[in-house]
Structures are given as structure tokens and as C-alpha cells.
Design a protein around this nucleic acid. Structure first.
Length: 441
RNA sequence: GGCCCUAUCGUCUAACGGUUAGGACAUCGCCUUCUCAAGGCGGUAAUCCGGGUUCGAUUCCCGGUAGGGUCACCA
């Protein structure tokens, strides 16, 4: 029986800023690959650059992973492994694969510093990448690159190699921006006697400008998506589908389905442009999977505070729910005063009451009839069906239904575009409806 | 510029040499008892170019072009 090695992947961000979707996509793919194969997923915070690393960014990473539901089996701080990095450094120097170089510090201060450089054997390095296939690069023009600022401050390439080795990482899944780092790291692996893991370099996520997604060019942090009211499962689903698909027509996936369907070899070879509109669609689809009461609760939470307890608030929730992609859209609707008329009598323009190609007299007559038959409806019968029946009764007798329905709708909403008059009237109640209609008489 | 990678509708993609080149988002039109939203139906829209290989190339090979990545005492 062949023994299968347990798969271990890692997500290794540096806490030097708020990370966007492109970065988290590498976390998602590493996570899905590990879980799909019953492996482990490790989080390693690469904080060796002490001047740029900030605790708040580390906390943001933790928060984001937690929100997305990407649970990790281990968490390491790279800075905690510095003693091990030093040991390898000393050993490399002793064995001649690295050396201390005295040179002028950068910045032109004239100060002489000691940096540690890797003794480059200047050879071709070939590695197998699950996504890109076999890649060969010559390392000659890399020179003797720096692997530590000094004996106490190891740098990226050394730290990554040592940590991956000691943590037993079997698959390094990271962004394509790391392919050119890979030969250097393989050289170091060979120098310290480490194995070479399997690589999978993911093509990058590009912004609408076709350039690598970046904060500078408008990419927002994952926690900002949370603030905007996106569902974590929708983000997970939508981001997974940037440059990957399961090969079946299904597009909406819950987390466990994603784990089940994930296949690293199906990852696209070319970079993908991030489509924010499609992400909204993913969110709308995932919204449909939510419990009705959760939807209602979240929509209400996004009402202006003074309206949350208004008697009409709960009645317009279903109207809102079919008009939003994400929770923050509710706030937007109030900001643009779309639904103000449910809470305050709208101001109306008497010219706009009259439906196209009809006269004022006609409109008045129609409205009088509507008011009369609506008045005859008892409070007990003031519901959507009865109101609709009553209004349609008048409307069908008119030349065009719009001659009746438009004036009603406009007087009730004060808007050219709004939900239909029946639902508005049913929400406003008998008194308010009649009072708004009478204003024109 | 050197090195590496990539190339199907506007965008994300499907088609492991033979398809009327399929789907999704977006867009447009129609229906959906006035408008809007939601829903239904339908439409427009793609194989970068040039050579090969082959009976036959979106698919394989070469070249061009275009795009991306990377060239730190950051990660």
C-alpha cells in the first residue's frame, strides 16, 4: 500500500496593510485545496519586516479569515522562528553557501554595513508548477542576492524557505507575482538540505484597468466588503470563480460544496479581470438562501435609526428585499429618498398627476370614483387583494388603465417611478391613502 | 529592456482535432393588468494576426503582435 503524504498548505501574508480580494483569493484556494484533500491549512504571518508590520493589520487578517470562514489548523508568526533562521544562516556561512559582505549602506550615508549574501551557483533551475507546468529559469543574473540584513535580521527568501521546510508545507499556493522568486528559494532549499514543495502559482486578479489589483487603484479590503453588507459565502463563491470553475454549469456554491468541487488543476492560466457586478449577482443569489427573518432583520438594521420603529417599516421590507444586492443598498435607497413617501406625505406637482394624453377633467373624475369606492371599503377589507380589485374596477372602465392608475400612484408616492399603487395603498392604510388622493380634488 | 507567463463575446468562462463555438454577468428587445423592481421569453456579441501539421484546427507546432508578472538590505 502506498502511503499518501498529508497535504499541508499555507497562507503567508505580511501584515503591512489591509489586504484585498486578490490576496484572499490565494488564501481561499489554499484553503479549498487543503480541505478537499483532508489536509491542513496553516496561517503564517510574515512579519520579518519589523518597521512595516503592524499589529492592527495582523488583526485585520485574522478577522477577515474568520469572517470568510477560512479556519486554519496552525498559526505562526514568522518573527517567532528567527532563532531557527539564524541557525540556518550560520550553517550556510560555515558551509560556504552564504557569506557576509561588507558594503555601503543604501541611502548614500557612507556607512559600512554587513549583509548576508547567498552564494549563487548560477545554474538553471527547473520546477513543476501545477498550473503553469514546467518552468525553467536561469539564476545567473540574480547575482549573489541578499538573504539577511544582518545575522539577526533574516529576509523573505530565507525565512520562507526555512519556515515552509519546518512546517512541512507540501504545496505552496501563491500569486503569480512569486514565480520569479521561486528559483531563488529552490536554491536556498538545496543549500539547507530542504525538500522542494509542489508549487501552484495563481494568475493574478486584475482590476478594471487590467493591472494587478491594488489598494492604490481602488481595490478594497475584505473587511470593507463586510461593512458594505456582502455575505461571506457570496464573497467566497464569487472570488473562487475568478480564474477557476468546476467544469459544470453550477455557479452558486456554498462553502462545503466549494470544498467538494475544488480542483487546482482547473485553475485558469491567464489573469482575470475582477468583475464587481458579477460579485453583486453572487451576493443576490446567496441572499436568496437566507432565512426570511434574517433578511428582514438585516434590512431593518440598515434603516435610518429614527425609522426602524416606524409602523410602516416592517411593511416595506419585502419591497426592499427584491431591490437590493447587499445590505448597504438599503442605506443607499434611503439616501436617495426612494421610499420617503412611506413615512411622509410627498410633495406633488399637479401637472404630473395627469396621465399622458388624458385631461385634467378625466383625471378628476377618475380620482373621484376611486376615492368613492375606496371609501366604501371597510378597514377590515383594507388589504392588497381588495384594494387591487377596487382600483382595477375603475381602471378597466377608463379609456386606458394608466389614466386611473398613474394618478393614484403619483399622488401616493410623489414619484415618476415607484412600486405599484395597490401595494402602496395597502401599506399606507385607508386614512392616509384617501387623504393623499383627496389633495388633488 | 532582460527573464517568466498568457491570449474564445465588453467581463468571467465551456468546448481534452470534427459543435449552428455553449453558459453566466452586463447590455438590448418583448411579455409580465400605469411607471419601477422582481420574474419569464428572446436578441446583439468572441476563437489576436500570419505561417505550418492534418482530410479537418478554438484545440497541436513555429513566428509576429498584444497583455500581464517580475527584476529591493519589501513580502
Amino acid at each position: 500500500m502506498e502511503e499518501k503524504k498529508k497535504i499541508i498548505t499555507r497562507f503567508a501574508p505580511s501584515p503591512t496593510g489591509l489586504l484585498h480580494l486578490g490576496t484572499y483569493r490565494t488564501a481561499i484556494f489554499s484553503y479549498l485545496f487543503a480541505r478537499k484533500n483532508n489536509g491542513s491549512f496553516i496561517l503564517r504571518i510574515e512579519d520579518t519586516d519589523r518597521s512595516r508590520s503592524k499589529k492592527e493589520y495582523e488583526e485585520n487578517i485574522l478577522e477577515s479569515l474568520d469572517w470568510l470562514g477560512l479556519d486554519f489548523d496552525q498559526k505562526y508568526l514568522q518573527s517567532e522562528n528567527i532563532e531557527s533562521h539564524k541557525k540556518h544562516l550560520e550553517k550556510m556561512i560555515k558551509e560556504g553557501t552564504a557569506y557576509i559582505s561588507k558594503e555601503e549602506a543604501k541611502g548614500g550615508s557612507g556607512e559600512i554595513k554587513e549583509v548576508v549574501r547567498f552564494k549563487n551557483p548560477n545554474i538553471d533551475v527547473t520546477f513543476v508548477d501545477i498550473i503553469k507546468g514546467e518552468v525553467t529559469m536561469n539564476t545567473t543574473d540574480l547575482g549573489d542576492f541578499v538573504i539577511a540584513k544582518n545575522m539577526n535580521e533574516p529576509l523573505f527568501h530565507l525565512a520562507v524557505v526555512v519556515d515552509d521546510f519546518e512546517e512541512g508545507i507540501t504545496h505552496v499556493i501563491r500569486g503569480e507575482d512569486h514565480v520569479s522568486n521561486t528559483p531563488r528559494q529552490i536554491l536556498i532549499q538545496r543549500a539547507i538540505g530542504a525538500y522542494t514543495p509542489i508549487y501552484a502559482h495563481l494568475p493574478l486578479v486584475l482590476g478594471p484597468d487590467k493591472l494587478k489589483l491594488s489598494k492604490r487603484r481602488g481595490a478594497i479590503p475584505v473587511t470593507e466588503y463586510r461593512a458594505l453588507g456582502y455575505l461571506p459565502e457570496a464573497i467566497l463563491n464569487g472570488v473562487s470563480f475568478i480564474g477557476w470553475n468546476p467544469g459544470t454549469p453550477q455557479e452558486i456554491f456554498k462553502k462545503d460544496e466549494l470544498v467538494n468541487a475544488f480542483d487546482l488543476t482547473k485553475v485558469q492560466k491567464s489573469p482575470a479581470i475582477f468583475n464587481a457586478e458579477k460579485l453583486d449577482w453572487f451576493n443576490r443569489e446567496h441572499l436568496k438562501n437566507l432565512l426570511k427573518e434574517d433578511i428582514e432583520k438585516n434590512i431593518l438594521l440598515n434603516f435610518p435609526e429614527n425609522l426602524q420603529t416606524h409602523p410602516n417599516a416592517s411593511k416595506i421590507i419585502s419591497l426592499i428585499s427584491e431591490r437590493i444586492s447587499k445590505w448597504s443598498d438599503v442605506q443607499k435607497m434611503f439616501a436617495t429618498h426612494e421610499f420617503d413617501f412611506f413615512f411622509d406625505t410627498p410633495t406633488t406637482d399637479s401637472q404630473k398627476v395627469i396621465f399622458k394624453n388624458t385631461t385634467k377633467e378625466e383625471t378628476l373624475e377618475n380620482l373621484k370614483q376611486v376615492i368613492a369606492s375606496l371609501s366604501a371599503l371597510s378597514e377590515d377589507h383594507w388589504n392588497l387583494e381588495e384594494i387591487k380589485k377596487t382600483m382595477m374596477n375603475v381602471a378597466e372602465k377608463a379609456n386606458t388603465k394608466g389614466a386611473v392608475l398613474h394618478p393614484i400612484r403619483y399622488l401616493l408616492s410623489g414619484l415618476e417611478k415607484s412600486p405599484d399603487p395597490f401595494i402602496i395603498a395597502s401599506i399606507l392604510g385607508k386614512n392616509e391613502t384617501l387623504s393623499r388622493l383627496q389633495k388633488f380634488i
